[in-house]
Amino acid sequence: VLGMLNIRFKEKGDELRAHCMSGTHEDNTPSWFINKNSGMFQCFSCGYRGNLHTLIKELTGQTLYEYLQIDNPDEYMFKAMLTKKKKRIRKIPTKLKITGDILDPHSDKQVMEYLRNRNIDDQFINDFHIKYCNFIVINGTKFRNRILIPIIVDGKILSYDGRTFTDDKPKVLYPKGTSLGTLFNIDNLNFDKELILVEGIMDMVKIYTHITKNVTTCFGINLSNKQIDLLENCQHLLVIPDNDKAGKQFISLLDKHMNYEYKIGFLESKDPGEASVEELKNTIQNAKLSIDYIIEKSGLFQSEEIKWRIK
């Protein structure tokens, strides 16, 4: 790509060194470094940074795929990702100390009404071993009137997502001393096929029930290093964030850590849990590459300076 742009550079290991392309300063001693593996670059003189996608967009006005005349970005992404070495994830078993009774949700009318109002059918209840409690203590954490959704890794319960069905606060509880450094339903996910990622368990109900079983959640927007490692094993990742400030923060955090392209499907007025099945299908079908979505939302190429440089 640099050669096609007539950019001269020197190569040393995994780094390429060239004169800065920001146009904001003289760079007699090259201070612009490009990583060969990720395509990320930064000038250590002026701070100019980005990746091949942003560079091509700035200099040519085209996307990287348009510039390279790649007709099928998905196929290109897949071939590129196949060369990425998968990381081995160390899973830490957790013992839970439980005092009290864990109950079948079908035995309580109020619990079933809560689940049905959230479009949770018997198949979803059975697949994810959903229970409830009136009052129990798990690892010293008190759970009162909670839906209990086990978080299972290697067939063992790592923790519980304890969700109130009586509007108590907080809305969700997790036992003390348990780790959420995993993805929900990790044992049944297929990382070689398109994997849909949402923020919470309730956001994935309609997707799992009506569209695809290959959907998961990271239990909120705060990604752990273990979750990042797991997501980097995914060949095709499609993220559907909540339509709020936290959802935008989630995308920013994800983009900061991910080293390859993924897709983003954004619902304009609803969260995934509130959207209809048809709206979710359309969102998945029309999802954009992350770099295109972020550039579009940021207005990065709308400034007069950038327009002048592109021209």
Rank of each mutant, 00 (worst) to 15 (best):
S252G: 01
L254M: 13
Q249E: 09
S224N: 11
D244M: 04
Q235A: 11
H236G: 08
L231E: 09
S252I: 04
C234T: 11
S224G: 10
M258N: 01
D242F: 03
I264D: 09
D255A: 13
D229L: 09
E261W: 06
K226Y: 09
L238P: 00
H236T: 09
Q249A: 11
Q235R: 13
N225L: 10
I228F: 05
L253Q: 05
K263L: 11
I251N: 00
S224F: 12
M258A: 03
F250A: 09
K245C: 01
E232T: 09
D242C: 05
L253F: 03
N259T: 15
N243A: 15
N243I: 08
D244W: 00
K263N: 05
Q227H: 13
S252N: 07
P241W: 00
L230K: 03
I251Q: 00
H257C: 04
D255R: 11
L231I: 07
D255C: 13
H236D: 14
Q235F: 12
K226A: 15
N233A: 13
Q227Y: 12
Q227M: 10
L238H: 05
D229E: 15
I264E: 08
N259R: 14
A246S: 12
D242W: 01
C234M: 06
Y262R: 08
H257G: 01
M258R: 01
F250E: 01
E232S: 15
K248A: 10
K256V: 06
D255N: 15
P241S: 08
L253C: 02
I228M: 08
K245R: 02
N233E: 10
